[in-house]
C-alpha cells in the first residue's frame, strides 16, 4: 500500500510538472498574440477607420461606402463595431444614412445570419446590433427571435424591435412579453417597455393587477419612466388597492416622476400614514411635483419622528423656490426643535 502511494506521488509530480509547463506556454502564447494584435488593431483604428468616419460625419455626400469594403482590411467585425459605436452619436437623417451604410456593406444580412447561430450569446449580440443598425430589413428575423428559448436573446430581440419599429412591433412584443412576465429579471421587461414608449402603456395597465409583486413593481417603474399622465388615475387606484408596501412606494415614486398635479392631494393624505417609508416617499414625490399647495403638510413633516421624513421634507421645501423658503423660515422660527434645526440647515444650503 505504502509503495503504491509512493508511486502515485511520484507520478503526480511528473503530471503536475507537465500541466504547469503546458499552462505557462498557453499563457505566454495567448499574451503575446493578444498584445501583438491588440496594438495592430489600435493602430489601424487610428490610421484608417477614425479618419474615414470623421469624413463621413462632416461630408456625408462625398462619402464613398466602398472604402469600407471588408476585403480591404479583413476584419469585418472590428469595422462594424467601430461604425456602430460612432453612429450612436447621430440622430435623424444622418443616422438613417448610417442605416443605409450598414445595409450596403452587408452588415445587416450578416447579423441576421448570426441570429441563427447555435451559441445564444452570439444570437443576443446579433439582435442587439440589429437594433442599433435600425434596418427594417431585420424585422422578420427579429420577430422570429422573439420566440427564442433563451431569455437574453428574447430580450435583445424585443429591445431591437422596439428600437426599429415600435408601432407595428408593439403587439408582437407585448404578446411575447406577457408570456414572460413571471420572469424574475424585471429590469428586462422594464427596458423593453420603455423602448416601446407610449404604445406599451395600455396593455401594461391592463396587466397591473394580475402580476406578482416583483412584476407589479417593475410595471409601475416602467410607467414612471414613460411619464404618461394617462397612467395617473390607474396608479392612484393601485395606491388604494395595493397591499404590498414595496409596490406602494414604487407607485408614489412613479406619481412624483410623472409630474401630474392631480396626484398632489392623494399624496398629501399619505403624509399622516403609519409607515415612515410611505411618508418619506410621499414627501419626496410632493417635492418633485413642486406641490406648493401641500406646503403646510410638508412643513409639518419637518417635525416627523423619523429623521429621513424630516430630511426629505426639508429637501422638498428647499426645491420649491420662494414659497418653500418662506415655509422653511416659518419652521425655523417655530418652537419645535427638530423642525427648526432641519429648516435652518436647508435655509443655509439654499
Amino acid at each position: 500500500m505504502f509503495e503504491f502511494i509512493q508511486d502515485l506521488v511520484l507520478q503526480s509530480t511528473v503530471v503536475l510538472a507537465g500541466l504547469l509547463f503546458l499552462l505557462a506556454v498557453v499563457l505566454f502564447v495567448e499574451k503575446t498574440v493578444r498584445n501583438t494584435f491588440g496594438v495592430y488593431r489600435q493602430r489601424r483604428y487610428h490610421l484608417y477607420e477614425q479618419s474615414l468616419l470623421s469624413q463621413f460625419a462632416h461630408e456625408p455626400l462625398s462619402f464613398r461606402p466602398w472604402r469600407f469594403r471588408p476585403k480591404k482590411w479583413g476584419d469585418l467585425r472590428i469595422i462594424e463595431f467601430l461604425l456602430l459605436d460612432y453612429a450612436r452619436q447621430f440622430r435623424g437623417s444622418l443616422r438613417n444614412q448610417f442605416t443605409g451604410l450598414f445595409e450596403i456593406l452587408g452588415y445587416v444580412d450578416s447579423e441576421v445570419a448570426r441570429l441563427r447561430a447555435w451559441r445564444w450569446w452570439v444570437r443576443a449580440q446579433a439582435a442587439k446590433r440589429l437594433g442599433e443598425m435600425g434596418s427594417r430589413r431585420a424585422i422578420p428575423a427579429l420577430r422570429v427571435a422573439l420566440t427564442d428559448s433563451n431569455e437574453e436573446v428574447w430580450f435583445m430581440a424585443a429591445l431591437a424591435l422596439a428600437q426599429i419599429d415600435r408601432k407595428t412591433a408593439a403587439k408582437a412584443i407585448y404578446e411575447s412579453l406577457s408570456c414572460r412576465l413571471s420572469h424574475p429579471n424585471s429590469s428586462y421587461v422594464l427596458e423593453v417597455v420603455v423602448g416601446l414608449g407610449g404604445e406599451a402603456w395600455t396593455p401594461l395597465l391592463e396587466s397591473l393587477a394580475r402580476q406578482s409583486e416583483t412584476m407589479r413593481a417593475a410595471i409601475v417603474r416602467a410607467l414612471a419612466e414613460l411619464k404618461s399622465t394617462q397612467a395617473v388615475p390607474f396608479l392612484l387606484c393601485r395606491l388604494k388597492e395595493e397591499r404590498s408596501p414595496t409596490v406602494r412606494v414604487e407607485v408614489i415614486v412613479a406619481l412624483g416622476r410623472i409630474g401630474d398635479p392631480t396626484a398632489i392631494e392623494p399624496l398629501r393624505c399619505l403624509l399622516t400614514t403609519a409607515s415612515a417609508e410611505i411618508r418619506q416617499a410621499a414627501v419626496q414625490a410632493l417635492g418633485r411635483l413642486q406641490a406648493t399647495e401641500a406646503k403646510e403638510g410638508i412643513r409639518a413633516a419637518l417635525e416627523d419622528p423619523d429623521y429621513w421624513v424630516g430630511f426629505r421634507a426639508g429637501e422638498a421645501l428647499a426645491g420649491m423656490g420662494e414659497v418653500g423658503r418662506e415655509s422653511l423660515q416659518r419652521a425655523c422660527a417655530s418652537a419645535r426643535i427638530r423642525a427648526s434645526t432641519m429648516a435652518r440647515y436647508f435655509l443655509e444650503r439654499t
Binding site: 509512493q6 511520484l10 499563457l27
Partner: peptide, 28 residues
C-alpha cells in the same frame, strides 16, 4: 523515506504553483 517526502513536497509545490498560475490565466 526521504524519497517519499521529497516527492510529496515536490507535488505540493507543483500543485500550489499550478493553482496560482491558473489564477494568472483567469486574470489574463
Amino acid at each position: 523515506s526521504p524519497a517519499f517526502i521529497t516527492a510529496f513536497l515536490a507535488v505540493s509545490v507543483l500543485a500550489g504553483t499550478l493553482i496560482s498560475v491558473s489564477a494568472i490565466l483567469l486574470e489574463e
